[in-house]
Design a binder for these strands. Structure first.
Lengths: 153, 153
DNA sequence: ACACTTACTTGCAATATCGAAGAGAAATAT
DNA sequence: ATATTTCTCTTCGATATTGCAAGTAAGTGT
C-alpha cells in the first residue's frame, strides 16, 4: 500500500492519514499556539524533530492543503508557512487533544486557566483563535495573542 | 529516545504519544462507532491492520489505561476489550476528527445527517454516546445504538 | 476423537525514523 | 570586497517500526 492510497473513506481514517503521525500536528500546534512560521522556528521546538523529517512533513502538509509556503517579505532565505482554511479547521481537533492531554497527564504544562476558558465558551473561543491565527497571530505568543486579548495568562 | 520516554509535557504532544499513531484511534473508533470488542472483530476492520500490530497496540492501549481486557462471559478463548473512563474521554476527539474528515474528504463515507446531528447538539450527543458505549452499545451498531435512539440513519 | 475457531507469536523483508554532517543561497560583519 | 554566519533543506548510515505470511496453543462444536 503506497502512502498516497487510502485504506478507507472512514472520516476518522481520512483524518489520521492526513495528520495522524507523530509530527504533523505538532507543526500545526506551533503555528496556532506559538505563532511559528519558519523552518528554523519549527526545528527549535522542544520535541526535537529531525531536520529531514521536518522537511518531508512540510512538503506533505503543503501537498495535502493544510499549509501554504510563501516567500518571506524581507529575507529571501526564509519561507513563511501559513495555515490554509483547511488547516485552520484543525483548531477544534487541537483543542480537544489539548483538553484530553491536560486532563490525563499528571505532569502537564497546560495552563489550567486556559483549558477552563476554552471549555467555558468553546464556540466563541474557536472563532477568536481562528481569526487571530488567520491574521498572523497565535494563542500564546506575540502582540495580538488570544490570551492577551482575553487578559489572562 | 525510547517510545516510553516523553518528548515534552505539552498536552497535545502527550495526546499524540498516547494515541497518535496510525492504528490506536481506529481501534477506539471500532469500539465507539461499531461496538467491536474482540481481537477478531478488530482484525476484520476494512483498514486491514496486521495481526502483530493489533496485538502490540492492544497491549499498549491497556498499559496506557485506555482499554481494559476482560475474559469473555461464555467463550474462554475470547477476550473482551472495553474503554476505560479515560478512553471514553476520547469521544470528543473522535467526533472532531470525524467532523474534519467528513468535511474535507470528497469521497467520505460519513452520513451527513449524523455529522449534522453532532454539530447541532454537541454536548448532549457526547453524553448520549458516552452512556451508550459505557453500557456496551455503540453509535451505529447493535440494538441500543445511538442512531436508533435518535431515530435516524 | 477430530476439525475448527480464537488470540496471539515468530521470522523476515520492506519501510520509516533518527542523528550527524554537509550543500547552496542569501544576509551580515569586517 | 571578502569572510563569516544564517537559513532552508539534503544526504547518509544506523536503528526502529511496520507489514506479510506462517505457525502455535488453548477452547469449542460435533
Amino acid at each position: 500500500m503506497k502512502r498516497s492510497e487510502s485504506k478507507s473513506h472512514c472520516p476518522i481514517n481520512f483524518s489520521l492519514e492526513t495528520f495522524g503521525d507523530s509530527w504533523s500536528l505538532l507543526i500545526v500546534r506551533d503555528i496556532v499556539y506559538f505563532g511559528k512560521k519558519t523552518y528554523g522556528e519549527f526545528l527549535e521546538s522542544e520535541e526535537g524533530i529531525s531536520s529531514n523529517i521536518l522537511a518531508t512533513r512540510l512538503v506533505t502538509l503543503e501537498q495535502k492543503g493544510i499549509l501554504v509556503k510563501n516567500p518571506h517579505d524581507t529575507d529571501k532565505r526564509k519561507e513563511v508557512y501559513l495555515l490554509t482554511e483547511k488547516g485552520l479547521d484543525l483548531i477544534p481537533v487541537l483543542l480537544e487533544m489539548a483538553g484530553w492531554g491536560a486532563r490525563h497527564d499528571p505532569e502537564t504544562n497546560a495552563p489550567q486557566s486556559w483549558i477552563a476558558a476554552v471549555y467555558a465558551d468553546r464556540e466563541r473561543m474557536i472563532r477568536v483563535i481562528r481569526d487571530t491565527v488567520r491574521s498572523g497571530g497565535s494563542i500564546f505568543a506575540g502582540q495580538n495573542s488570544v490570551v492577551s486579548k482575553l487578559e489572562m495568562d
